[in-house]
Amino acid sequence: MKTMFEEMNYSTDDVKELVQCTFYTQRKDINKGTSIRQLTQEWPFLFKESGMVVHFQELTGVSLMECFHANVDKKCRRLLSFFKTVDAPKHKQVLDVFIKFQTERGQLDGCPGDVIEMVLLLLAHFGEKEDNLFHYVDKTCLAREVQMEKLPATPCIIVCGSSCFTAGMFMLSIDQEVVNDHITSFVPAFCLLFGSYYCFNIHYPVELRSTLEFLQRCFFSINPERGTKVQWKKNKKALAVNPRVLTLIADLADHEWT
C-alpha cells in the first residue's frame, strides 16, 4: 500500500479492498497510540478520501460522504432559512456572519456554498470561534510553508485563500501535522476533518463541542444514547447530550424541520 501510494499507481477500488483487509491492523496501531506522523507514513491512504471513508464505515457503520450529502440535501436549506429568518434577528453575532458571508460568497452557489455558510453560522450560533476549526493562509501557500505552531492540535482545515468561499485549495492538519495537502473542495475537506475524530480516537475540543455534536447527530447520523466525544475537564460533569444542541434541534423542529 505504501508503494502504491508513493508511485500513485492505484485505483479507488484497489484502495477500498486493501483498507478493508487491513482494518484490524490499522485499528491496532491507532489504539496503541501511534503518532499521527507515523500513521501518515505507515497508512497514508487513511488520510485521503479513498481510504478514510472505508475505515470510517468499517468503524461506525456510517457512510461518511454519502450520509453527509444526503442530510445536506434534506436539511441544509431549512437550517439556513432558520438562521436567516429566526436566529439572525435575535443574535447579532449570527446576523454579522450572515451579512459578511453573503457578501463574500459571490458566485459559489449550490452545495459547497451552502455547507460553508451552514458551518460558519453554526459556529456563530453557538458562540464558538472559527479559528478553532479553520486556519487561513495565502492562496499559493505550500504545506511546508504552513506555520505549524499556529495550528490547533485537534483536526483543522487549512484554507488556502482569504475565506472558505474564495479558497483555491484546502489542507487537513491533525496534531499540528499537515496530513493531506491537496483537497480541492470544501465538502470533502470537512468530511475528512469530521471523520478524523472517529478514525484517530480524538475527542472534540470543548471550544467546538456544540457545533461538532450538532453536526454529528443531524448531518452524520451518529446518535449514541450515552457517552460523549467532548474532552471535559476532570471536575466537570459530562452530559450525555449537549443541552444547547437539543435546544437548537427543538427550535428547528418548530421551524418545520424534517
Rank of each mutant, 00 (worst) to 15 (best):
S35D: 13
I36V: 10
T40N: 04
T40M: 10
E42C: 13
W43D: 07
F45H: 05
F45D: 08
S50E: 15
G51N: 02
V53R: 13
V54R: 06
V54N: 09
V54K: 06
H55I: 13
F56A: 05
Q57T: 13
G61T: 06
G61V: 09
S63W: 13
M65N: 15
E66W: 14
F68K: 08
N71G: 07
K74Y: 01
K75L: 13
C76S: 10
L79D: 08
S81E: 10
F82M: 07
F83I: 09
F83D: 04
K92D: 15
K92Y: 15
Q93H: 14
L95D: 12
D96T: 11
V97Q: 11
F101C: 05
Q102M: 14
T103E: 13
Q107M: 12
Q107P: 03
Q107D: 14
L108Y: 05
L108C: 04
D109N: 12
D109C: 14
D109S: 12
G110Q: 04
D114W: 01
E117F: 13
E117T: 12
M118C: 12
V119T: 08
E128Q: 05
K129G: 12
E130M: 02
E130Q: 05
D131Q: 15
H135G: 07
H135I: 03
E149R: 00
A153P: 12
A153W: 11
I157E: 00
I157H: 01
C160S: 02
G161S: 01
S163N: 06
C164V: 04
T166M: 01
M171S: 00
M171V: 02
M171K: 04
S173P: 03
I174K: 06
D175M: 09
